[in-house]
Amino acid sequence: MVRYSPGTALWSDPLSTLRRIQEEMNRGVGGSRWHATTEFPPLNVWRGEGGVLVTAEVPGVSIDDIELTVHQNTLTIKGKSVPDGNVPEESFHRRERHYGPFGRTIALPYGVDSDGVKATTNNGILTIELPRPETEKPKRIEITQG
């Protein structure tokens, strides 16, 4: 007897397939760029001795419409992109940009002290600096001869 059991990963997010199809259609009509994720905003993560830097592409999103939360080792980015002005649908010749609420949550490699977190936006790129707290830094243990 063969029992068909779909992989759980396939079913965890039924919308991801739809999003992927939409992204591929956009590509066909000359719309969006390639991204390794269908989630918004796409993130790049940088690591260094001093901590982690997260950058996100948020074109057209004002810093006032972005909300960041850090809880232990979890970073949450929430916000909304709002169209500029109220343009009637029929006056569009071409419409490729998307608007609406967005949110991402990522796990950081260590717990972060939220007081030390700095965030800026520049040219549609959000940069979040997450310094590694002293207590989370690796300690060198002196070995003494017994």
Binding site: G30, E57, V58, G60, F92, R97, G124, I125
Partner: peptide
């Protein structure tokens, strides 16, 4: 190829282009 919206007003075309970074 940047994501682009184009709309028309009475006397102009308005083009908005996403170019993050």
């Amino acid at each position: 190829s940047p994501t682009t919206d184009i709309h028309e007003t009475a006397d102009a075309l308005i083009v908005t282009v996403e170019m993050p970074g």
